[in-house]
C-alpha cells in the first residue's frame, strides 16, 4: 500500500489520458470530441488528487470539465458538428512532434526523481511559506494562504487577464447582434447546409 499503489494509479490514469487524447485525435464527430474532452478533464482531476493537489483538482474538474465543455458545445451549436476532412496523416507534423518529444524526454534525465523530498524546488521559499501560513497568516490551507497573501499580485494579474478576455469575447460576438438588427438575418445559421464548402459573402 502507499507508494506502490499511487504508482499504479498514476500509470493507469496517465494511460487512460493518452488513450482519450488519441481518440480525440481520430474522431470526426465534434460532439463526441466535446464529451471526450470532459472525460479527459475528469481523468486529469483524478490524477491531480493522486498527486496531492486537491485545490487544483477542484478547479480542473469545475473549469476544465464544466465550463470548457459548455463553451465547446455552444461553439458547436453556432458552427458545425462534424469535421469535414477525414483525419489525414501528416509526416512533417510527426517529425516535429518526435523531435520535440525526444528532446524533452532527454531533458528529464536532469530532473529530480519523482517524489524526491530533497528536490531543489522544495528547499528555497517553500519552508518559509509553510511556516508563515502556520504562524503569521493562520489559514490552514497553505495553497490558499500563498494564493491570497504571498502571491496576491498573481491573482490580481489573473483577474486582469480574465477581464481582457471577457472584453475580447464581447467585442467579437457582441457586434454580430448589432449587424443582425441593422440588416436583418444575415447570419449563417447552423441549419444551413454544412456540406457546402462555398465561401459565402461576408456580411460585415
Amino acid at each position: 500500500m502507499g507508494a506502490e499503489m499511487i504508482t499504479i494509479v498514476n500509470i493507469v490514469l496517465l494511460t487512460m489520458l493518452c488513450f482519450s487524447a488519441v481518440a480525440i485525435m481520430l474522431l470526426r464527430h465534434l460532439f463526441a470530441v466535446a464529451a471526450l474532452t470532459g472525460a479527459f478533464s475528469l481523468l486529469s482531476a483524478g490524477l491531480l488528487v493522486a498527486l496531492d493537489a486537491v485545490d487544483v483538482a477542484f478547479t480542473e474538474a469545475a473549469v476544465g470539465g464544466g465550463i470548457s465543455t459548455v463553451l465547446m458545445l455552444g461553439t458547436l451549436a453556432l458552427t458545425q458538428r462534424r469535421e469535414h476532412r477525414p483525419p489525414r496523416f501528416s509526416l512533417p507534423a510527426l517529425l516535429v512532434v518526435i523531435a520535440t518529444g525526444g528532446a524533452l524526454i532527454y531533458a528529464t534525465s536532469d530532473m529530480p526523481a519523482y517524489g524526491d523530498p530533497n528536490a531543489p524546488a522544495l528547499q528555497h521559499v517553500v519552508p518559509v511559506y509553510i511556516e508563515g501560513s502556520r504562524n503569521d497568516i493562520g489559514v490552514p490551507n497553505i495553497v490558499t494562504s500563498i494564493l491570497a497573501s504571498y502571491r496576491g499580485y498573481d491573482t490580481l494579474g489573473e483577474v486582469a487577464v480574465i477581464f481582457t478576455a471577457g472584453i475580447g469575447v464581447m467585442f467579437l460576438l457582441g457586434r454580430r447582434r448589432e449587424d443582425e438588427d441593422d440588416e436583418g438575418m444575415v447570419r449563417h445559421g447552423p441549419g444551413n447546409d454544412p456540406e457546402s464548402s462555398e465561401p459565402e459573402e461576408t456580411a460585415s
Binding site: 487544483v56 476544465g64 524546488a121 517553500v126
Partner: peptide
C-alpha cells in the same frame, strides 16, 4: 510543494479565458 499548486491554479483560470476567446 504548495507553490506549483498555486501557479497552476492561476494557469487553469487563465487557460479557460484564452479558450473562450
Amino acid at each position: 510543494n504548495p507553490l506549483p499548486h498555486v501557479l497552476i491554479l492561476t494557469a487553469i483560470v487563465v487557460g479557460i479565458a484564452t479558450t473562450a476567446l
